[in-house]
């Protein structure tokens, strides 16, 4: 897949998770309606991919932070029990 950050979908990076997810749902809806022109469908598809990637980034980031936090608490708990 091409790099979504450059090109027309660069704005996706600035979107919040909820915004990205909601727009993704809208894009899928429009694509599935099939009313778009070919060029429009392709552009929509690319944007869909960019949005999905952004959402995934958010989720992965959240999971990393949680793991990091859990890492600390694991140490704390170890500390508590000592």
């Amino acid at each position: 897949m091409d790099d979504a950050t450059a090109g027309p979908n660069a704005d996706v990076q600035a979107l919040s998770y909820e915004q990205a997810r909601d727009e993704l749902v809208a894009v899928v809806g429009r694509l599935e309606s099939g009313a778009e022109s070919l060029e429009e469908s392709l552009a929509l598809w690319e944007r869909g991919e960019a949005l999905a990637a952004r959402c995934q980034q958010w989720l992965d980031g959240a999971r990393d932070r949680l793991a990091a936090a859990r890492g600390e608490t694991a140490r704390d708990e170890a500390g508590d029990d000592a």
């Binding site: 997810r21 749902v25 991919e49 999905a52 959240a62």
Partner: peptide, 29 residues
Amino acid sequence: ALVQRLQREQTALDHWRSRPVLAQPSTLV
């Protein structure tokens, strides 16, 4: 609660990504 929320969001995202229009763009073409 947080883990559960993350899982819920992940499944939602997977669901959208698995939709044919995204998973196999060729279907569009």
